[in-house]
Structure formats: C-alpha cells, structure tokens
C-alpha cells in the first residue's frame, strides 16, 4: 500500500491551551488544556453536556472559541476554516452520522480522499477503493448510503475520515448504537488503521470498555472543565471522575 504507507508516523502533536467557549453566558468549555503526543490516542470522557462535542467542534473549526489556542505541531489553527483544517489532516466522524446521501459508499470515501491530498483523481480513487475493501465494504461500494444499517454507516464514516489522511483523527462516539460484534469490529479496524497510519486521535465515547481498549491516555471533562487526565488505570479509580459519573447517573 504505497500511497498510504507514505504517511505512516505522521501523527500530529496536538496542544490545546486554556480553551473557552461560551454559549450565551453558559460556558461550554471553561479553560480546557490538553496535550497529545504524535500517534497517541486520547479518550475523552464525561457526562452529557460536559463539552466533549464542543471541544471537537472547536478543533475542527465549526465553533469559534472565545479564548484559548489550539496548536497542531506547534502551529496555531487560529481562524482557519473547517475545510482548510481537514486539508492539513484534521478529520472527524460525527456522533449523528453525516454521510452524503447523494453519493454512493465509494464516492463518500473518495470525496474525502481527493480533498485531502493534492493527489490525482485516479490515486484518490485507488486509495478509496483500498480502504473500502479493507473495512469490508466492497460489496456495497456502488450502492447508496441511504438505508444502510447503522453499523455499516458508522464504518463508512470511519473509512471516510481515514481516507482524509488524518494526522489528527477526531472520533465522536464511533460505536454508538452498535451491537457488541460491530463494536469489536470497529475497535479492530481502528487498531489496524492506527498501526498502519500512525495518526493521533481523540476518542469521545460513552462505552467505557471501548475507551479502555483503545486509549493510551484518558481525559475526563465535566461542566466544561478538565477534572482528570491520566492512564486508563488511574482514571478508573479517580474519585472526581467517579463522582461526576455517579452524579450524572443519579
């Protein structure tokens, strides 16, 4: 796989400094700082409304933070629009699935491949075809994305985000709504692609086993603040995290 192999080890170093976002007086993010080394997978956990998706939206550029900086390999993203961020390797999946219904499965992936690099159309197409096959989607590659089951749709989104040659991959609940088997499948895909491509990743996920299985480190958010940051083992025992989750559950 020459085209893909060329980008191995190109995970970006992410540094977020004191990020703040306010929605009409309510702080969705209240001074969050976060670091990810190249190739690291960071789990981001927290109860609903903790600011996880807002954090993703800030990084991918659809929400403008009121203060703070996001640095990719030391360069601030500043006011870079979303599509420019995607082109320098910040790709993402969406919690509520955002496939493009006018395009078939292959073209969804191909679109991301041809927007990502300045590669020729044929090369992008070859990349997309390979990825679609690697994720076991080749049987439906020419079919419409509308009407596919959720598990398959999540995979198409994953393929699409990976086709964008990520240096930083943002995964917003990639196993939400999936069966146990499909979840295991997604975990295997992510592990294999991560080993091959070496991207840095942030993973928002509610299913703790998935976070534990994939993350090198875990960051916990609550009410827009970071309440914990450490290895999966340490986070599991962190009293603040337990309190936040129990508090949210009660």
């Amino acid at each position: 796989m020459p085209a893909i192999a060329a980008s191995v080890g190109r995970g970006a170093r992410l540094a977020i400094r004191d990020l703040r976002v306010g929605f009409g007086g309510v702080a969705a993010l209240d001074g969050v700082s976060l670091d990810a080394a190249p190739g690291e997978i960071i789990g981001v956990i927290g109860p609903n409304g903790a600011g996880k998706t807002t954090l993703f939206n800030c990084i991918s550029g659809t929400v403008r933070p009121s203060a703070g900086t996001i640095l990719l390999d030391g360069a601030p993203l500043g006011r870079l629009p979303p599509h420019r961020r995607a082109r320098i390797g910040v790709t993402r999946t969406f919690q509520n699935l955002a496939l493009l219904d006018s395009l078939n499965v292959l073209d969804n992936v191909r679109l991301a491949a041809e927007q990502a690099g300045r590669q020729r159309s044929a090369a992008a197409r070859a990349d997309a075809t390979r990825l679609v096959a690697a994720l076991g989607l080749d049987a439906i590659a020419r079919g419409p994305v509308g009407g596919l089951p959720v598990g398959t749709r999540r995979k198409v989104e994953l393929a699409r985000a990976i086709a964008g040659r990520p240096r930083l991959l943002l995964l917003d609940e990639p196993t939400s709504g999936l069966s146990e088997m499909e979840t295991a499948d997604v975990i295997a895909i992510l592990r294999a692609q991560h080993a091959a491509l070496g991207f840095t990743a942030l993973l928002v996920e509610h299913q703790m086993p998935v976070v534990m299985a994939l993350s090198d480190r875990i960051v916990a958010l609550d009410f827009g603040r970071k309440i914990a940051d450490g290895t999966p083992g340490a986070i599991r025992r962190d009293p603040l995290v337990l309190a936040a989750y129990l508090g949210a559950a009660s």
Partner: peptide, 8 residues
C-alpha cells in the same frame, strides 16, 4: 457541515 469537515 460534513462536507466542510471533509475538506470541501
């Protein structure tokens, strides 16, 4: 929104 996130 999704198109933008894909680099369009």
């Amino acid at each position: 929104l999704a198109a933008g996130a894909l680099g369009v």
